[in-house]
């Protein structure tokens, strides 16, 4: 039996830098961009000193938003491959997880099958968030440099940018809550903050991964 004090590394430095760099840039982009999503959110532009300066902040942030994950990808391609390998090893246990997750989310006691480094929900989050964020960047640059692209592509970039924003922000609402105040989240916040998680928590929540990294001890 593992002791309470033991800790295991869940996220490397570059993964954590990518995560929090993305968090900050995404939130600034969200707030500065929402002003144009609905006229009722126009007041948000005032935070940045008006629509025009909100637009400047949005563009400057967009550059960091693009560079940070790309830089981390170049710095640590192995970590990136490991992440996606796990995400796409989507099996029966992940499906079972997703089926009982709505109950677990609201606090009903359920039996969860052993999970790998990322549970079924985290895998879904990885796919939806990454797809949305890549499309957000692509559609955003098309809107920014619209003179350089075919007009039809520019016109479709506007609704695509909004759809991806909605999906990504919905995932943020869920993800931020699940990673902090949800009683089941436990150590997951510290995994992304300090990098390490309590060994007994890892054994309980990510049994398959825990066995792999500890060699089944």
């Amino acid at each position: 039996m593992v002791t309470k004090k033991e800790r295991v590394l869940r996220f490397s430095g570059s993964a954590r830098f990518a995560h929090w760099g993305h968090t900050i840039t995404f939130l600034v982009l969200l707030i500065s961009g929402l002003a144009l999503f609905s006229p009722s959110l126009g007041f948000l532009a005032a935070i940045f000193g008006g629509y025009v300066s909100a637009g400047v902040v949005h563009r400057v942030m967009a550059v960091f938003y693009t560079i940070i994950p790309l830089a981390c990808l170049i710095a640590n391609p192995k970590g990136f491959v490991e992440w996606w390998k796990d995400v796409f090893s989507f099996g029966a246990d992940d499906i079972k997880f997703l089926m009982v997750f709505p109950l677990e989310f609201f606090g009903f006691p359920v039996k969860i099958p052993p999970q790998s480094k990322f549970n079924g929900g985290e895998k879904m989050n990885s796919v939806i968030t990454t797809t949305s964020c890549v499309l957000l960047a692509i559609s955003g640059y098309i809107m920014w440099f619209k003179e350089s692209f075919p007009i039809g592509l520019v016109q479709w970039s506007y609704p695509i940018h909004d759809i991806c924003m909605i999906l990504a922000t919905t995932m943020v609402c869920m993800h931020a809550y699940l990673g902090s105040f949800h009683p089941g989240s436990g150590e997951s916040f510290w995994g992304m903050w300090k990098g390490t998680v309590r060994a007994d928590w890892a054994a309980h929540h990510h049994a398959k991964w825990y066995e792999k990294v500890t060699g089944g001890k």
Binding site: G107, T170, C173
Partner: peptide, 20 residues
């Protein structure tokens, strides 16, 4: 969809604690 997700999170914050 966004406020809906936010509302679900707030709902869960209380329901998980009540059930527990």
């Amino acid at each position: 969809l966004i406020p809906l997700a936010g509302a679900a999170a707030i709902g869960s914050f209380f329901s998980t604690r009540l059930i527990n």
